[in-house]
Amino acid sequence: MSEAISALAGANTEGFARVSELGLHGMITVRGNQSDAAFAKAVCAVAGVDALPAIRKMVGTLEGGIAWMSPDELMVFVPYSQVVERVGQLNETLAGQHFLAVNVSDARAVFGIDGAAAREVLAKIAPVDLSPEAFGVGDLRRTRISQIAAAFWMSGEESFRLVCFRSVAEYAFKLLGTSAAKGGEVGYF
């Protein structure tokens, strides 16, 4: 069996913000009734967090967290080496319930956008109000960046994390890098 590699082997670029491909992360798409206590408990246990996220929020980190994706869909983040085990745990715990848990780790790419002007990088390419009053730490949007689907959240005061399909990882990296290039600062925020 071949060894797993990330979409862009940790590529990064530095402009007025840093853009980095963040390597392999375990990602599980989970669909089910988020208001069901047994479902919520099982998903939280797998992710290692205390509660499901509110609408358009992210709780935890890329090593153990949950992103709200839609009223019946969550993205669970776990260490890459544990994703198969965690999908099995969900399947066992939720047996008999109506749900879906799928390992999508190798179908996605993850990027970091870091620096004092990180929000400006995304504001230039996504139809989202990224003003500090409207978008803060833990906020998440599932949207588009230019021509591709993506989800991103603010992971810290000067940091964002973005997930997109692996098939468009190179496009996403170049787009983010161009948006972050020195000389392209807007200075709006």
Rank of each mutant, 00 (worst) to 15 (best):
P127Y: 09
L94F: 03
Q82W: 03
L122Y: 04
V78F: 05
V49W: 03
P79A: 14
G60T: 09
G138V: 08
A54Y: 10
L140Y: 02
D36E: 15
M69R: 09
A95F: 15
A40M: 01
F77V: 11
A126L: 10
A101L: 08
I148S: 03
G96Y: 06
A101M: 06
R144P: 03
D106G: 02
Q82M: 10
T143E: 01
I148K: 01
N91W: 06
G138P: 09
M75A: 13
P71N: 01
M75N: 10
R86K: 14
A126V: 14
T143I: 07
A51N: 11
A95I: 15
G96K: 03
V83Q: 04
F77E: 02
W68Q: 07
A134N: 14
L90W: 11
E120Y: 04
E85P: 06
V84W: 07
V110R: 00
S146N: 10
Y80G: 13
T93E: 14
L140A: 07
A123G: 07
S146W: 01
V137R: 00
I148D: 06
A107C: 04
F39R: 04
I125T: 05
S81Y: 11
E120C: 05
L52M: 08
A116H: 06
V43N: 10
I148A: 05
K41R: 11
D139G: 13
R141P: 14
D106L: 12
R56T: 12
C44P: 04
S70R: 08
A109R: 02
I145D: 00
A67K: 02
A101C: 06
A45T: 13
V137C: 00
L74C: 05
A117V: 08
P71F: 03
V104C: 03
G64I: 05
I125N: 07
T143P: 13
E133V: 11
A134Y: 05
N103S: 03
S105N: 11
W68A: 07
A42I: 14
A40Y: 00
D106M: 07
A117K: 01
V110F: 02
K41H: 08
D114N: 06
A67L: 13
L74P: 00
K124E: 09
V102T: 11
C44E: 02
E120D: 06
L52S: 05
S35F: 13
L130Q: 03
A109C: 06
V84Q: 13
I113K: 03
S70L: 07
V49A: 05
C44D: 02
G96P: 08
S35D: 15
I125Q: 05
A109K: 05
G136Q: 12
E85S: 13
V49D: 04
V128G: 01
C44F: 01
A117M: 09
A95P: 14
V78K: 01
S35C: 11
L94M: 09
R56G: 03
T143A: 00
V46P: 01
S105M: 11
A54Q: 14
A117P: 00
F135R: 06
V128T: 10
P127D: 14
Q147N: 15
I66A: 12
M58V: 15
R108H: 13
A117Q: 07
N91C: 11
A47P: 12
A54F: 12
E73S: 14
A126H: 09
E120S: 08
L52N: 07
G64F: 04
D129K: 08
